[in-house]
């Protein structure tokens, strides 16, 4: 079962690279925000998988919960911050 978890987490890392493409090359700031949000929501699952591999789930589940909250607040704060910027529209052209 540990081997299966190892391969599942490797596959998750591969998918995170795909989402990171949108985070780096996204045409607007909001596209980058979407990419970062997708990477964050996969990291929460990845943290629990790491906890199961190392058999310390009781410790890693707290880290995963804190990371989920941090991801939510980061996306909310960033989208509120870029709302007041006028430069969003120019960046597309």
């Amino acid at each position: 079962m540990e081997t299966l978890f190892l391969f599942v987490s490797l596959y998750l890392c591969l998918i995170m690279v795909l989402s990171l493409y949108r985070g780096i090359f996204g045409p607007t700031v909001l596209d980058r925000l979407i990419g970062v949000n997708a990477v964050g929501s996969k990291t929460v699952v990845l943290l629990i998988l790491i906890g199961l591999i190392y058999e310390r789930v009781d410790m890693f589940v707290d880290i995963a919960m804190a990371y989920a909250m941090l991801n939510f607040i980061a996306v909310l704060a960033a989208s509120r911050y870029f709302q007041k910027r006028k430069g969003l529209y120019k960046e597309m052209k």
Partner: peptide, 20 residues
């Protein structure tokens, strides 16, 4: 928590796009 917070985050991003 993810089920509560994910629609809110999406709504925040959509709102930022609409206001821009």
């Amino acid at each position: 928590f993810v089920f509560l917070s994910s629609p809110t985050a999406i709504h925040g991003i959509v709102d930022a796009g609409m206001r821009a």
